[in-house]
Amino acid sequence: MTLNSTLQRVSWRGLRQRGLPGWVGALPLLMFLALFLILPIAANVVTSFWVNGAFSFSAMAQLLEPQYLDAFIQTFNLSLLTAAVGGVLGLLLAWALATGRKPAWLQNLVLSFSAVASQMGGVALAFAFIATLGVQGFATQAILGLTGWDLSQDIQLASFSGLALVYLYFQIPLMAILMLPAFGALKKQWQEAANSLGASRLRYLLDIALPIMWPSIAGSLLLLFANSFGAYATAYALAGGRVNLVPILIGFFISGDVMNDESFAAALVTGMVVVVVAAMGLRSLAERKANRWLR
């Protein structure tokens, strides 16, 4: 390496440091997201307030018609139910995974499967459940053979409660995965200190563990809620049009199966995005609170 070329390189580096401000490095990512995420969503929001060439709330107001309001209520209820039940059971699972010690292989297996199941959703899950609890399903036939009870008569997968059951399959492990760090942040000394001061385990749980953990719990529940509010593939593969849900309705509008009203279709999407963004916004507030204790 000659002195000359070294000098050249150094000066080139200096040039780059001066000439290229930091935001230039973020530019490709910014442009990519602007084109494929921000602009589509913005176009959608604009369209939902743009009816027949003029600004109007009429498309958004149409969301309040009984059929569509019902879709929002059903989706809301489904999300609330699966977030609440999934949240409680997931919390229990997280507790068992975070504090249990033996047997290690079982812990690891369940942990690794939780990671997979929490991201699963989708059509594969829908068909796996049809194979389990459908009319010809594995569990249905086994229980029918053993007890004579045909469970497919009582648990219909293509219904509100059936969907709730299937959603729990990814909601419970998702809650467990989300809550594991919070359990890790609970210091052992806190419990020992509480015990040494004469607190029972219940008192420790209510006065120390829960107050510390509730922001993470609330944040995770909100994510679970948003997660199921926007879920499309599982619901579509299981129920098609038999359950009145917002994502399914949006799907029908996009594929042109129902009347072609662009503004109203956009309004449906805007309505859904507002609900999901509100949930996720609250979640980031909760997370900020939770982070105070996680350090």
Binding site: L33, L37, P40, I41, N44, Y232, I250, A266, V273, V276
Partner: peptide, 22 residues
């Protein structure tokens, strides 16, 4: 913060917007 936005926007909403825009 930018990278988390897709987490907030459900896939179905992205499709609807993309369909409209493109």
């Amino acid at each position: 913060w930018l990278s988390v936005i897709p987490y907030v926007v459900p896939a179905i909403a992205l499709v609807a917007g993309a369909n409209l825009f493109f």
